[in-house]
Design a protein around this nucleic acid. Structure first.
Lengths: 219, 219
DNA sequence: CCTGATCGACCGTCCGTACGGTGACCACGC
DNA sequence: GCGTGGTCACCGTACGGACGGTCGATCAGG
């Protein structure tokens, strides 16, 4: 995770952690100020409003994820590799940038009507569009079974977005293993021919390596 | 959805709707009282605290879901049918009991540390235990591929729990169709032999019929 | 001396909850 | 038949705390 540089970044970092742990509504600026040994007024001075802070956290996060995925896709051609990359990336982000990941996932709908969140919504939409297009591409190429690309995309996003509820980065299973298991089942359901699946669903495989590189590069 | 009978039920119904639409924290008793043309004091008289109201909504909902699934499983033997039933049931509940479904899904973690929520947590755990055991059973019986039952259960729950964000009961696709699509992909990833899958993943098939009966019976 | 970060007191509002009271209804005993 | 006491749903108000945000003062560095 981007090590906080300067007071401002430090505040945002702490804010993200509080949101991740308690949720947006239960997060109050006073606590954050106390924890950082500063005044509430200082926080307001930097960000204006609480909503702005959430906006900034989510926007940074979505931008980073999108950028990373685009980077991976430049190095991965096959639809099954690209889909796997999205899954691996989502799991690894829990480790690389834990707080922003959880904050973003648990508050998806927070302030969604706020015009300030328009950019965030756009980024989310872009992510979904990319995924859906790749699924459709796989179907058209005769690699995937004929599935409903939209619903299947949302099904995938669901599994991944829900992870904040149960995934423990310090748990017995490594993120790579968890990711591999999810890739195995999801792609196992998509691929017409499962030959070669175990290669993609290998926690030590080439796809994971690419994903890890692109994620740490964006740091 | 259980038509509200008496003031008390009416209040709970409205509360569930508000939570579904705005979230627990943004729901305030004053608005509900106004909408129902009663005093805030009346609501307190019936339920004691706001937290109690959420508890009651979630507990009713989980109990109902659990009961329905158990009913289905008495009539469905094959692991693939039972897993499909869970998926169909989750989607259909969005129609049968829309507000409680959304409220329960979006507030999974709310008050999760509250001892009053212990029963709800127990019911959730029971649901998960049932599913995981059935997955394992399918693996042991040589019907499913060798997957990690725990992670795969959570993967399934994720897709389903996330639906409140995007699923529109009044949308172009019927709940049965959406459910069938999700069954198709998920079971497609589990089954060693996909022969017979289209029968289970048929929105007009026998499994759906059983699910629908058990859900409306519990009303 | 200007600029930007920081402080800390303060405000207004919102909201859950407590509490005292009212009227309808009903069972019961005289 | 009629008072009486109890129960129950409901009301209105007020309290008290929490919290986001404002504002003018202060401080440090260039």
């Amino acid at each position: 995770m981007p090590r906080p540089v300067g007071r401002r970044a430090e505040i945002l970092e702490t804010f993200a952690r509080h949101v991740a742990e308690r949720g947006y509504d239960q997060t109050n600026l006073g606590d954050i100020a106390d924890e950082l040994g500063m005044s509430k007024g200082t926080i307001v001075h930097h960000f204006g409003t609480k909503a702005q802070m959430l906006r900034e956290v989510e926007e940074n996060y979505m931008r980073r994820q999108l950028h990373a995925v685009q980077g991976m896709w430049e190095r991965l051609e096959k639809p099954q590799e690209r889909v796997a990359a999205i899954i691996y990336a989502s799991v690894l982000l829990h480790v690389v940038d834990r707080h922003a990941t959880v904050a973003t996932q648990r508050e998806v709908v927070q302030l969604s009507d706020d015009p300030a969140m328009q950019e965030v919504r756009k980024l989310r939409g872009e992510m979904q569009r990319l995924t859906e297009a790749e699924l459709q591409h796989g179907v058209d190429a005769g690699l995937f079974r004929k599935v409903d690309a939209r619903v299947t995309t949302l099904q995938l996003f669901g599994s991944v977005q829900w992870m904040w509820v149960w995934f423990d980065p310090k748990g017995a299973q490594s993120p790579e293993e968890v990711g591999a298991s999810m890739v195995d089942v999801f792609l196992g359901g998509l691929l017409l021919d499962r030959y070669g699946l175990q290669q993609v669903a290998d926690p030590k495989g080439a796809v994971v390596a690419v994903v890890r590189e692109c994620l740490t590069a964006a740091e």
